[in-house]
Nucleic acid binder design. Structure first.
Lengths: 221, 221
DNA sequence: TCTTTATTTCATATTTTTGTTACATAATTT
DNA sequence: AAATTATGTAACAAAAATATGAAATAAAGA
């Protein structure tokens, strides 16, 4: 679960980050342009968006990312409390609108409601694809109830792909989600991990469902 | 689009009904038990739920219908504005929470945001021309739901042409878009790729729509 | 600390895509 | 109709992307 906070007040941004950091991975952007850049990776489960931002304001950010087919749920978090601002926020593609000052617990409840809605697997502890089953709490994967041996990031990557079955996930997305895109390593690690996962799946003849989309990424399908 | 309003104050319920009646079909329930009965039909796109209700209160309604696997988005509309009420509302499976008094326009904006989100087409990214359909997210093309086999740049080119149906696209435009203007290759590659795409389309007798405009370029029409 | 396990890097093999050429075919002009 | 020019296409060559084993490094546990 990864959240992007687009908010220029650093203190507030950090407060939110700290409040959420136990339950989510957090990235922060501090102006509109940076926000668009981050959002375009399409690796977030929710975006928290301020409206008054330097360079590009929140409306522009929202408009731009929706135009680019980034459909991540967006919660607008702002001091602007007029009806017309709210209407504009929803009209441009926002999913929720919360005005400052706000209770952190309410923000969290709203975020969780959005996540649970957009990712039906959220409350599930298990995700399955045919007889491949992954247990998220215990970080284990099974095929026909036999346990696969996957190391940490192999599991992370499989979980990510399982969460988005039948959708192509680019290597950059996988890299961004698991390594964080400011990481030093090259995206070749993604291939190495893909290879490792495949090797495990092959034992049960499940490697056939782990597809490479050349020039793009991977997909479980 | 069908909405269920579970609200015991008849005046308010009717006001909402009248406000929405042009855009949605509306049903009204006036106590919790009736609300559950209606909701269980599972025919609504959104439910507007009051908390203080006769017979069964809103929390009980929400709890019950979620237990019965009714996953219709629920907007809680209530005078209860304490944090603990809000948290409970989300925790029991609510999707949004709006306190009375409220602006009708805001209610509408929030309802529309929920509907848009739960509409599966919202996530789709497809372009069609007759029975030729391309799925941009998954980079696949279909004719009569049978998948075409197109390699990377073949898909890119078809996507470009599909995006501009009935418009002539010059070879230079295609070249510029897909290869980049500073590329080393000659524009003959465009012809080669056109040929490849046509070969695929021919299997379904769709090559007739892939037209060459001599001296200019190509067009899907 | 030492040991074990996980992660990353690197080198090489493999696969697939892409580009080029040469010639065939079709359209246009003379 | 012949000549000219543009386009189509198959076959091959080249380049690029990906897969993977193995070694090196880093991190975690005992």
């Amino acid at each position: 679960m990864r959240i992007l906070i687009i908010e220029d007040e650093r203190v507030l941004s950090n407060t939110i980050r700290d409040f959420f950091k136990e339950d989510f991975e957090i990235d922060q952007a501090f102006d509109g342009e940076e926000g668009i850049l981050y959002a375009k990776q399409d690796i977030y489960d929710v975006i928290i968006l301020d409206l008054m931002l330097p360079i590009k304001d929140g409306y522009q950010v929202l408009e731009q990312i929706r135009k680019d087919k980034i459909l991540t749920p967006v919660l607008i978090l702002t001091a602007k409390d007029s009806l017309s601002d709210k209407l504009q926020g929803f009209q441009k593609g926002g999913d929720d609108y919360l005005t400052k000052p706000f209770a952190k617990e309410e923000l969290k409840a709203r975020i969780e409601a959005m996540v649970r809605r957009s990712n039906p697997n959220f409350y599930k502890n298990e995700i399955t694809f045919k007889d491949l089953k992954i247990d998220i709490n215990n970080r284990k994967a099974y095929i026909n109830n036999e346990e696969l041996t996957l190391q940490g990031k192999q599991f992370d990557m499989l979980e990510y792909l399982m969460n988005h079955q039948n959708r192509i996930i680019t290597k950059e997305q996988i890299f961004g989600k698991i390594w964080g895109f400011n990481s030093e390593t090259t995206t070749n690690v993604v291939e190495v991990y893909a290879s490792g996962i495949r090797k495990e799946l092959k034992k049960y003849d499940y490697d056939q469902y782990f597809k490479t989309i050349r020039g793009v990424g991977y997909m479980i399908s």
